[in-house]
Nucleic acid binder design. Structure first.
Length: 770
RNA sequence: GCCAAGGUGGCGUAAUCGGUAGCCGCACAGCACUCAAAAUGCUGCGAGAGCAAUCUCAUGGGAGUUCGAGUCUCCCCCUUGGCACCA
């Protein structure tokens, strides 16, 4: 029989199998108590107008590989997908072209869905969610009401960071170098009433519970730095002849005997009280005024020279040695950290020293005292955090409405839960306003309503939630997407939580990842979810940069669109390429030349069909076992590049053979299937298999049969390789020494020299020292 | 300044319980096939010396530990990411 092989037609194959898998519902997850579950999660994409980015494909393919492997290891796998669709870019685009954001979102998600499907990801599409769907954000609003009920959501007049371009208030986490994270515009300060979430109440647990997670170490470190836990003491310094105390926070109570002055922040509440008692009132008032005129960046720049002014005529008393010390104010002391006052120890603190030298304040060398003793004598232990409460209001249209009203009589009143969702009204104009009011404020028909409590006149809250709201709990909704009675059924939650493996970007470490851990812990405290932490394991991918090594960004227009590659070379080639291009956790520059190698690899795999015969030998068998081991372990360690490399080695070896065993070929296909699901499925069918390759079990290997019976043993002279011996595993040390010395290429190196010693590493090498 | 990860051929990288540095891929060169090209296949490919066998040098720089260092220790330089007057 003559075997006629068709050419590798990726377009035909990929479309065919994508259709087939969908019709067979191969990736549908269900609660199956007979099976162990595995919940794998990618960060759901923001459906931008530019379509899918090659970076999405990198992280999605990685989790797709892991999900596919788990299914074949016998797990019930939940690998869902949805859309994080609220947010500014869509709103800005909608304003620009005059179309409703909801319509823009629909169009964008349609594009994304089509693109994702073209790549063959094994998502359970029946669980698709969208944060802008009222059936979804009903529950985002519901969780907000629970937070409000527990006093964790509150409104506060405060100075906020205002982006004048986006006309929106920003959370601390959304500011980079004093500029808007999104558009790079310099952030301004504004006084405004804001909704806040008390994430600081969870600071301790958000820090401590990291111990019990399997997050990458760098992710833990970054979260810990952001939370900024600092253990120290609060110590009261009495003010002389004045019935007041200055409370300072210090991490070094052991240096208390070296304190030579106190520094208050210019905003400190005691400054106002002390100002009438001082002799240089005018100068101090001038200094405070100057401070107010400085912007945040000038104020907090560590490099700028420190300035300050003494409050002349008042003194504080060091509680440890009763010394009278001067009181200063300086703008490098932050009002909103610690107590807004510091004790200065110039001999033991570089910053205090600089300040003391500049203003010729005394520097006192001391012996360090016992920390615990000093705390118990002069203060009390206390833990401070850098983390601030989360600013939760946004003054824009395209977000979840905050479900409360402002009643003339009752104040802030939450909506009744049965009245949720509070839908976003359709507006003619979603242009943000310079006044800082949400566009919703202009719809008087929507704004004016009745108080749910007293039925009197009330106005709706017009701020909306930030885009981080919907993403703070979406992994819970995936578990039970259609539930109308609860955000998810408790039995289903029990089966699926926590997320077993969550991969995402490092840029979300202090934003989304922290926020969602906070919400989850709150829901846990409310008895609404069964686990303390949402995610068991968190890993991160490196970014894909442009060929020039720049960030790909919409504004620069240097984004690589994957559609062309899928069309011309195939989804399997693109998937292989993105996994092979370099270490998964490392940022990497896109290179359009090297993709040819991935395509060639798949072509080679395809052509191996011609070689099927019966021939197999021991070396091939060992190589196959090694490949199984390597691919199996590398997937777990996200070393996809070396996994592919090892499969390439196997394919190259197959090519050298005149015939290959069908069983051996099938093992290669099984290993490759998570990486290149279409081509492997097609060949699998051609080889006569009836059931999908993705339902086959993951290959196993016999650990004891990994080594060849004949070893190559290196011969070194003084650590340099000079020859080698082929031997079997049983060779004795004496025999080995004799053989090595008698080898002619070795002899010439040791002639006329004395052998000092010989080092033998069993099965590996012999080193002769002369 | 602090924290983290890195620095290996022309390029992306591989090898880190210390044991043949450069696997795999890209690019490049030669050959085969072809009227020709592409594709494909074969061969070569760190630098230097040599007809060759082979030798010397080489993993950011310097020192050290060791029979033996890309890998461990110390110092320094550089790149990337994060934090940054946090008391």
């Amino acid at each position: 029989m003559v075997f006629i092989m068709n050419p590798y037609n990726h377009n035909k194959i990929e479309k065919k199998w994508q259709k087939y898998w969908e019709s067979k519902k191969l990736n549908k997850a269900k609660e199956n108590n007979k099976k162990k579950k595995f919940y794998s999660l990618i960060e759901f994409p923001y459906p931008s107008g530019k379509g899918l980015h090659v970076g999405h494909i990198r992280s999605n393919t990685a989790m797709d590989i892991i999900s596919r492997k788990r299914r074949r290891e016998g797990y019930e796998v939940l690998f869902p997908i949805g859309w994080d669709a609220f947010g500014l870019p869509t709103e800005n685009y909608a304003i620009k072209i005059g179309i409703q954001p909801a319509i823009v979102t629909k169009k964008n998600t349609d594009t994304f869905r089509k693109q994702l499907k073209s790549l063959g990801f094994s998502f359970d599409w029946s669980r698709e969610i969208n944060t802008t769907d009222p059936k979804y954000y009903k529950w985002t609003q519901w969780i907000f009401l629970q937070l409000l009920k527990k006093g964790l959501a509150y409104k506060k007049k405060m100075t906020i960071n205002w982006c004048p371009k986006d006309m929106i208030g920003l959370a601390n986490e959304e500011i980079v170098d004093g500029c808007c994270e999104r558009c790079g515009t310099k952030v301004e300060k504004r006084e405004k009433e804001q909704w806040m979430l008390a994430i600081t109440k969870y600071a301790e647990r958000l820090d401590k519970d990291l111990d019990n997670t399997d997050f990458l170490e760098k992710i833990k470190i970054q979260q810990r730095n952001w939370i900024g836990k600092s253990e120290g003491a609060e110590i009261d310094f009495p003010v002389k002849c004045f019935d007041k105390k200055i409370k300072v926070f210090t991490t070094r109570p052991d240096t208390i005997f070296g304190v030579t002055y106190i520094v208050l922040s210019p905003e400190h509440y005691l400054v106002n009280e002390l100002i009438s008692k001082i002799s240089n009132k005018l100068e101090v008032e001038k200094y405070i005024k100057n401070t107010k005129n400085k912007n945040e960046i000038e104020r907090t720049d560590a490099k700028s020279e420190k300035t300050g002014i003494e409050l002349k005529g008042v003194k504080a008393i060091n509680p440890a040695n009763k010394e009278e010390i001067p009181i200063w104010i300086a703008d490098y002391v932050l009002a909103n950290y610690g107590t807004g006052a510091v004790m200065a120890v110039p001999a033991h603190d570089e910053r205090d020293k600089q300040f003391a030298l500049k203003y010729t304040l005394p520097i006192k060398e001391i012996d360090l005292a016992n920390k615990e003793e000093m705390i118990s004598k002069y203060g009390k232990p206390i833990t401070k955090f850098k983390l601030r409460d989360w600013i939760f209001s946004r003054q824009r249209y395209w977000g979840e409405p905050i479900p409360v009203v402002h009643c003339e009589k009752c104040g802030i009143v939450p909506l009744n839960e049965k009245d949720l969702p509070l839908k976003l009204p359709k507006v003619k104009n979603y242009q943000p306003t310079e006044t800082g009011e949400s566009p919703l404020a202009t719809i008087s028909k929507w704004v004016n309503t009745k108080c749910p409590k007293c039925k009197g006149k009330a106005k709706r809250e017009t701020d909306t939630m930030p885009n981080w709201a919907g993403s703070s709990w979406y992994y819970l909704r995936y578990i039970d997407t259609k539930n109308k009675k609860a955000f998810a059924d408790s039995k289903k939650l029990k089966y699926w939580t926590p997320v077993d493996w969550y991969n995402g970007g490092m840029e979300h470490t202090t934003l989304h990842l922290l926020y969602s851990r906070f919400w989850h812990k709150f829901l846990f405290d409310e008895g609404l979810v069964p686990t303390n932490e949402p995610y068991k394991k968190r890993t991160s991918h490196g970014m894909i940069l442009t060929e020039e090594g720049e960030k790909m960004s919409k504004s620069k227009g240097n984004i690589i669109n994957p559609d062309e590659i899928v069309k011309n070379l195939g989804a399997d080639t693109l998937r292989i390429h993105e996994m092979f291009i370099g270490p998964f956790d490392q940022a990497i520059a896109w290179n359009s030349d090297t993709i040819a190698g991935s395509r060639r690899f798949l072509e080679k795999v395809w052509k191996l069909q011609e070689k099927i015969g019966k021939d197999s030998n021991e070396n091939i068998e060992i190589l196959i076992r090694k490949t199984i081991k390597k691919v199996t372990e590398d997937i777990e360690g996200m070393r996809f590049n070396t996994a592919i490399s090892s499969m390439m080695i196997l394919v190259n070896e197959f090519e050298k053979q005149s015939e290959i065993d069908k069983i051996d070929y099938e093992i290669l296909l099984k290993l490759l299937a998570p990486f290149a699901p279409h081509i492997t499925e097609e060949i699998w069918l051609i080889l006569g298999n009836k059931k999908s390759i993705h339902l086959s079990s993951w290959p196993k290997y016999d650990e004891s049969k990994l080594v060849e019976s004949v070893f190559k043993i290196m011969i070194q002279i003084n650590g340099k390789v000079r020859g080698q011996i082929e031997s079997n595993a049983d060779i004795s040390d004496q025999e080995l020494e004799k053989t090595a010395i008698n080898k002619p290429e070795i002899k010439k190196w040791i002639e006329g020299k004395t052998i000092k010693k010989m080092i033998i590493i069993k099965g590996k090498l012999i080193n002769i020292v002369v």
